[in-house]
């Protein structure tokens, strides 16, 4: 089967780079699955779970916002603000982060728009991490 040249990059590092069979990406317009020879596409990434299929096994990643670029000749580049492999996710810390963000969101009246938006984004990111982290644990056990 034809492979996709896949890369996911953040400002800090290249998180994952490999030849893969298919990838399912959460975007603002809904979840998309990219196979080899997909038509060129630019889309916006949404916080959530990114699934990669390669040689019959799955790789899970949690991502936040960013860009998805599907290039010609089966190349996919994702520029993410943050991205983590499922095995790197610390569930306790993610839970803690979610709780903190939720608590701060409760004091809505005292926040200005920018802070509110930032917290909302933070919360979404933590939720994505939790989801991916939990699923990974379940798959392993």
């Amino acid at each position: 089967m034809e492979k996709i040249n896949f890369k996911i990059i953040t400002l800090e590092r290249v998180v994952y780079e490999d030849e893969i069979d298919q990838v399912t990406i959460p975007t603002q317009a809904g979840e998309i699955t990219v196979l080899a020879r997909h038509t060129p596409l630019v889309s916006l990434l949404k916080p959530g779970e990114l699934r990669i299929k390669k040689d019959g096994y799955d790789v899970l990643l949690s991502v936040s916002t960013g860009f998805v670029e599907v290039r010609p000749k089966s190349e996919v580049v994702i520029l993410a603000d943050t991205a983590e492999r499922a095995e790197e996710i610390d569930l306790e810390r993610a839970e803690e982060g979610r709780r903190r963000a939720e608590e701060m969101l409760k004091e809505k009246e005292r926040l200005d728009d920018v802070q509110f938006a930032r917290l909302q984004a933070q919360l979404e990111k933590e939720l994505a991490r939790l989801k991916v982290g939990r699923r990974y644990r379940k798959l392993r056990s």
Partner: peptide, 18 residues
């Protein structure tokens, strides 16, 4: 390489805005 057009989701403007 390619001359094929890129698809934009949701729109070109929004992508550029980011």
């Amino acid at each position: 390489e390619s001359m094929s057009l890129y698809l934009f989701e949701p729109s070109e403007e929004e992508v550029l805005n980011l």
